[in-house]
Design a protein around this nucleic acid. Structure first.
Lengths: 230, 230
DNA sequence: GCAAAAGTGTTGTACTTACACCCATGG
DNA sequence: CCATGGGTGTAAGTACAACACTTTTGC
């Protein structure tokens, strides 16, 4: 029994579109697909889907993320709602964009074939359908702010990472070079990383030590009124 | 002619809710109303409305703002989309929140009677319907970030303002006291304000000089790679 | 032995913070 | 003449930016 106040108002299709970020080979990538349906079939597009009756926006986004990555508990944040009248040329659709940070090392490449998906360097983005370029732009701006104030960047890694990789990732997100010694000094003063015994010998002969982010120490850090900053 | 891909997907009511901020007597206020309809009739609520067929989200928000303030060209920014399944107990509604900054000095008090609206100090917010308290909280956080990095605060004033009033407003938004001399020094180094000849004698015997924000100088300021910061 | 990436400190500069007194005016 | 709010400068501490060489090791 719906109250009268709600009756006779327009109803809309609602989509969620996900900007799925991943990091590999010193570059920030976005997972894109060739749009499988008309209109604009085969054009580059973000991963998306329609919202269903009994799910929340975040649940709808989680479903999209799971479908295209087979990963659970993906770090995700809403970017914005996009509601221009002709933004989708197929029908009137309001879209809510989310960005997500995934561990690209765990990515199952068979999924890529199944969904005609590809990881594209954010610096080399093609023209995307509708307002998806704007969504990526907005997501990246929000991500820049977020990683500078909250330790969300560690969601790109599966537990451990090296300092050179971490710095490369910050540089890819900020799209600017950073000073190695200043970067490590700032990290050091926060004292939130644990140096592991093992080294990554993949990217250099000497090898770089792995580190891991210490969540317990971060809780203490916060409770002392300190704030993450990079 | 709607393509098949879009057919058979659920359609939703979409609302816009506006967090209308105003500044008076050293305090930040939000314009609230007594909800005029069931359910939760007469409970405190943000100003809102349903989105219609041929309008964008921002257009829908502009309509709400114009309806309740009779002002045009109001500074406005999207906060987020809210889509929990049971957020509105009357029916399934997805809401997109916008915050707006209005010149409270120009506010027509007859509107308050017409819409049963009141300016409430943000520090004394009552319990609002649905998730509206969350929306105000999110809007305020976003506003805090915005006024610290962009000169949007001047949208609270009609052309001119005094430095004590400007500082009071920042303090109300940040919800913390600021040092008078440091505040004025930082403003001074940006050199974006014009000191006017006239004084405001309302709030003190001595009177405080009025200033105005110089947009042309701000453009130059930006083109020199500088960034607003307070 | 050399190329390639990892690791490590210091110094000058700019910014941030803390702080106290005189001024102008209306009543 | 006094209460009220407006206006002003300096010094210490902190954060930031710039900068170059040594180490390790696979080839």
């Amino acid at each position: 029994m719906i109250p009268t106040y709600y009756e006779n108002n327009a109803h809309f299709l609602i989509a969620v579109d996900c900007i799925i970020f991943g990091f590999r080979k010193k570059e920030l990538h976005v997972l894109l697909t060739r749009r499988p349906v008309e209109p604009l079939k085969n054009e580059w597009s973000l991963m998306g889907g329609f919202m269903e009756e009994n799910e929340s926006l975040t649940r709808a986004a989680e479903k999209v993320l799971y479908r295209y990555t087979q990963q659970k508990n993906i770090y995700m944040e809403q970017v914005a709602a996009y509601g221009e009248v002709n933004r989708d040329i197929g029908d009137r659709v309001i879209s809510v964009a989310f960005y997500a940070l995934v561990k690209m090392e765990n990515f199952d490449t068979s999924l890529a074939r199944k969904f005609d998906a590809r990881w594209i360097n954010v610096k080399e983005l093609p023209r995307l359908v509708f307002d998806h370029n704007q969504m990526v732009y907005d997501a990246l701006r929000l991500l820049q702010y977020k990683v500078s104030t909250k330790p969300v960047i560690f969601n790109f890694f599966d537990e451990k990472f090296t300092l050179p990789a971490l710095q490369d990732l910050y540089e890819a997100i900020y799209q600017m070079p950073m000073d190695k010694r200043n970067f490590r000094k700032k990290l050091g003063t926060m004292d939130l990383l644990d140096k592991l015994e093992i080294k990554d010998k993949e990217s250099s002969k000497r090898g770089a030590y792995f580190y891991s982010f210490n969540r317990e120490r971060y809780e203490v850090f916060l409770s002392e009124g300190k704030r993450f900053s990079l």
